[in-house]
Design a protein around this nucleic acid. Structure first.
Length: 464
RNA sequence: GUCCCGUUCGUCUAGAGGCCUAGGACACCAGCCUUUCACGUUGGUAACACGGGUUCGAAUCCCGUACGGGACGCCA
């Protein structure tokens, strides 16, 4: 049978990093098995669902390169079907009408908790004569769940998980206003969409027992389930804002490359020997559920950042150029003309060796676009001693005679250092300060060459 | 409270009874490279939660304990 997996987020705000990993695993699983990957937006809660949130999800997935094979299914469009199935279950005796009020249920829960019991519906309408129904009260439809025995889930990650049916109550599948509940619509949709593998967060594991009961009541074939552990923050608690970025689009803003984020997310909770860095094709080739761990893992921003550095170094210069220009565009202190752009482009092969995020890359490139006078970092200003300025004037003369290729610059600098009896560092650091306003930059010959003779000499002139 | 799940270096993981004096990666520390900063490279610190079994032999199997997480809505 052809594999069909799906990612089914509810559009209630942002695309969480944990959800993104769930989506990635579903995508990789489907691709690995030559199957299909679908997207279903679970927007049945009209109070919380917004169109903007749906866009955030789609945009986030697109950025990560996790693209569904079909147009997304909106769960809200399928509510009539969900109700239809609920009524079928009513007709077949697998469900019944419950006339309890919200207040009645609240009391039931409180009393159970007070008595140290599990807060469950007591089944008071399960076998009651519908003729006793209070007038004017619209009933909710409840699943007539099996009372004895147990429900078993053969989970591809968690192995066999079982629970006594006595632990489960008769859950509502259709609300009194005729709308379906989550567990019900998920089952109906997964069945109707022909989903073969349900891969989702661990937090759904206990829902699965109830969902299995619906499959059984309808006589539908069960999909294979796989519950992957959640991602936690560095302190082991549920990942939230206070741990740092959690929204996928936030990572984009902070200068992470989608392939780095995917690589990191893949290795979080999944392993394949000693492999750390693997691209999309390799991930598809190697990914399977048996490599997924069972314990929750903690988000480690340092490791993500390290991976990001690797991907930035590998990235295409023109692509990085676009990213940097975009990030520098809002800076009013820069003069981002074609000359500046050309300088950045020229130095990009050097710059990208040193940046771990696109934000760092843009910052490191900014000096190339800065009009004179250059702002000086305190450390750089300290380098420009009176003696250093004298050296700079002499070097400027030597440099002016070269054709300004990195090789000729390097030769001129070395020659100057040798003939004046100085170390290269004594020559390079004042130059770096004058040229960049900083004490850290790419190699001085490449920096000079990228700046061009005219600009470079002007910058030296400006400080001497 | 009840039910379900989990537990290998600080973190992510390798490990399917002997290959483990437990391997890799990030982070950290020290050295090398070097015109700065990175990169790279060499080395180092650092873990099988605890207690019982089973076995000739257990990180690996079983049972408890502790700790952690998840779920218990007419939310999804």
């Amino acid at each position: 049978m052809t594999v069909r997996a799906r990612f089914a987020p509810s559009p209630t705000g942002l695309l969480h990093i944990g959800s993104a990993r769930t989506a990635l695993f579903n995508y990789l699983f489907a691709r690995h098995h030559g199957g299909e990957f679908l997207l279903r937006i679970e927007d049945t809660d009209r109070e919380r669902s917004t169109e903007a949130a749906t866009h955030v999800i789609i945009e986030g997935l697109e950025w990560l390169g996790i693209t569904p094979d079909q147009l997304p299914v909106f769960q809200s469009t399928r509510m009539a079907r969900h109700a239809e199935v609920a009524r079928q279950m009513l007709a077949s005796g697998h469900a019944y009408n419950c006339y309890c009020t919200a207040e009645e249920l609240r009391q039931m829960r409180e009393q159970a908790l007070a008595e140290g019991r599990s807060p469950r519906y007591d089944g008071r309408w399960r076998d009651r004569d519908p003729a006793e129904a209070p007038p004017g009260v619209a009933p909710a439809i409840r699943l007539r769940a099996p009372r004895g025995g147990e429900t078993v889930v053969e989970d591809l990650v968690q192995a066999t998980v079982r629970v006594a049916n006595a632990e489960l109550d008769d859950m509502i599948i259709l609300r009194s206003d005729g709308t379906p509940t989550y567990n019900h619509s998920v089952v109906v949709d997964d069945h109707d969409m022909g989903i073969t593998n349900v891969i989702r967060g661990d937090d759904h594991l206990t829902n699965t027992f109830r969902q299995v009961q619906i499959y059984q009541a309808m006589g539908w074939e069960l999909p294979r389930f796989a519950h992957i552990p959640l991602i936690h923050g560095a302190d082991g608690a549920k990942l939230s804002k206070r741990h740092g970025a959690v929204s996928v689009l936030e990572f984009r803003e902070q200068g992470y490359l989608p392939e780095a984020l995917c690589n990191y997310l893949l290795r979080l909770g999944w392993g394949h020997g000693d492999l750390e860095v693997l691209d999309r094709d390799e991930a598809i080739r190697l990914f399977d559920l048996d490599g997924v761990g069972r314990a929750p893992s903690r988000m480690d921003y340092a490791k993500l950042t390290h991976l990001n550095g690797i991907y930035i170094r590998q990235a295409d210069d023109d692509r990085l150029m676009r990213e940097v220009l975009e990030r520098l565009a809002h800076r009013t202190d820069l003069a981002l003309g074609s000359k500046a752009a050309a300088r950045i482009r020229a130095l990009m092969p050097e710059l990208k060796q040193r940046a771990k995020t696109l934000v760092e890359l843009a910052d490191a490139a900014a000096f190339l676009a800065h009009p004179l006078p250059l702002p000086m970092e305190p450390k750089a200003a300290a380098v420009l001693t009176p003696e250093a300025r004298i050296i700079l004037r002499e070097i400027a003369g030597a440099l002016a005679k070269t054709d300004f290729t990195p090789a000729s610059i390097d030769a001129a600098l070395r020659d100057f250092a040798a003939t004046t009896g100085r170390k290269l560092g004594q020559v390079a650091q004042p130059l770096r300060a004058a040229l960049t306003g900083s004490t850290a930059s790419p190699g001085i010959d490449a920096t000079l060459a990228a700046l061009g003779k005219e600009e470079a000499l002007a910058r030296i002139e400006a400080v001497t």
